[in-house]
Write a protein that binds this DNA or RNA. Structure first.
Lengths: 167, 167
DNA sequence: CTTTACCCGACAAAAATAGTCGGACTAATA
DNA sequence: TATTAGTCCGACTATTTTTGTCGGGTAAAG
């Protein structure tokens, strides 16, 4: 599990897709214009997203992409995994022949940590983000003053009460 | 919040330090030998760890590094943050002048997601890992057969019951 | 049959990662 | 006091990943 700008771009694009989905598919040019991601880069990302059956494509004029299933069934972790093809992450995988036992221990440790984050992001669906985001959009227009009103968005989604100490 | 091998190296090294801490400080050469991380790279990492007051150093023969405070008070998130100096992460920070409102929305979305992960990793201390890891070491020696016995280490630590679907 | 889009592979610039090297400085100890 | 084991530090480099660009395909609508 890696967390880089690549995954962020993918999540952003997928959210844009969910946000603008209707009867007509959404073209990458539209997403590119709205989200300020280069068209060619979007093509690469969506190629992977399509191969991982997160989106389906429609070719020709008026074509574009659609979510392959409902936004409630597409999770942030799936999107990030789809664009991060190098799932190796550790060097020695599974049957690990790292020198002594100790190296393997920290290796396993990291895998567990990584898996936990994965599990965490597997709980947040596109719909979760979308629904809250719509509310947020309206709220942002209504009181365009308090710049910190977004700070517990995901916490609200998950119903957590984490204190989120000092980022 | 980024999640790369750099952070993994740092966490691994810090865990090694906690594991071998006694009256005498631990030299980087020792950690390098045990964890198979190049000495020079460790020097870079520990330079940042020291500047972030996660470790303290003792120079001269018999010198090395010590945890600056108890392992129960050092958290995974702090270690990862310490070695990832580029805390920018988003391009437009805070007062964001991204084109329209929409870009800012996904921007904020990602910040929230990132903050959640950060909060998550802020709950796991070095001691948490160390304690469980010792148990794990013994367990690994006892039944060196079932290769999947490590799969819910962190879940156990946090008392979660996440189903950890398909990694 | 032209246009609009997806599709695809090769290429490339830029950044981050991972590691090297040489030379300081510091303090224990022989 | 000379040696030695360690941290410290900056510069340099190689490799990989990110972030694209480019050129040419293919499919389908009008």
């Amino acid at each position: 599990m890696r967390l880089t700008t690549k995954g962020r771009y993918a999540v952003t694009a997928m959210l844009d897709l969910a946000l603008h989905s209707s009867d007509r598919p959404v073209s990458l040019a539209d997403i590119s214009g709205r989200q300020d991601i280069s068209l060619s880069y979007l093509e690469q990302l969506f190629s992977k997203l399509r191969r991982n059956s997160l989106v389906s494509s429609v070719r020709g004029p008026g074509g574009g992409y659609r979510l392959s299933r409902g936004g409630h069934d597409i999770f942030v972790a799936q999107i990030i995994d789809a664009v991060n093809d190098t799932v190796d992450a550790t060097g020695c995988g599974g049957t690990a022949d790292c020198q002594q036992g100790e190296v393997c221990l920290t290796h396993y440790l990291w895998c567990d940590l990584s898996d936990q984050i994965h599990g965490f992001l597997s709980e947040i669906s596109l719909s979760n983000l979308l629904e809250k985001r719509e509310v947020q959009t309206i709220a942002a227009r209504q009181d365009a003053r308090s710049h910190n009103s977004h700070s517990s968005l995901v916490a609200e989604i998950r119903g957590d009460t984490l204190p989120l100490t000092e980022i």
